[in-house]
Design a protein around this nucleic acid. Structure first.
Length: 155
DNA sequence: GCCAACGTTGGC
DNA sequence: GCCAACGTTGGC
């Protein structure tokens, strides 16, 4: 199984929204690298960190499970949708999404500023300068290390 | 709100 | 196919 980290702006869709929904579509991704990962690599049973971006304190805030592998994102076909893409054709869809299920909040949010302090996470794209990937793979070692931070005091 | 870094677009 | 211009992301 694989591990992931997925970003969302809490003002748009935060972990509490996913908790309320239970299961939801991770739609609106319009980046090819992220698309490829959802379409080709994510499988039901994979786990992902829910990350809050573009907010006061960017942080990993929870865990979710992939429950449906990549399939075409219908919001790309909808002229009324915010992320409508006229170049995505239902017969040859350009954009994909997965379904995710809320698992739990972390015991405490683990802020980006803290994640940046650890040598163990130096290769995680999230902490690298200028990184803009909204979906990224996390190694098992990184996953376990981050979970190990949960019970510690933040710094 | 600023702005650096990045991905995409489109002219050539 | 190059690359400048542009729009977006996202931390600060």
């Amino acid at each position: 199984m694989n591990y992931w980290l997925m970003k969302s702006e809490p003002d748009v869709y935060g972990i509490d929204d996913l908790k309320a929904a239970g299961v939801d579509h991770w739609d609106g991704v319009r980046n090819y690298q992220a698309r490829n990962m959802m379409r080709d690599r994510m499988k039901p049973g994979d786990l992902a960190f829910f990350y809050h971006s573009n907010c006061k304190e960017p942080a990993i805030v929870g865990i979710m499970e992939i429950v449906r592998e990549g399939y075409p994102d219908p919001t790309a076909f909808d002229p009324e949708a915010k992320y409508y893409d006229p170049k995505s054709d239902p017969d040859n869809p350009r954009w994909y999404m997965v379904d995710v299920k809320y698992v739990r909040h972390l015991e405490r949010p683990i802020p980006l500023a803290e994640l940046k302090q650890y040598e163990e996470l130096a290769d995680l794209p999230l902490v690298r300068r200028g990184n803009r990937l909204s979906i990224m793979p996390v190694t098992k070692a990184q996953w376990d290390f981050i979970l190990g931070l949960e019970g510690k005091e933040g710094s």
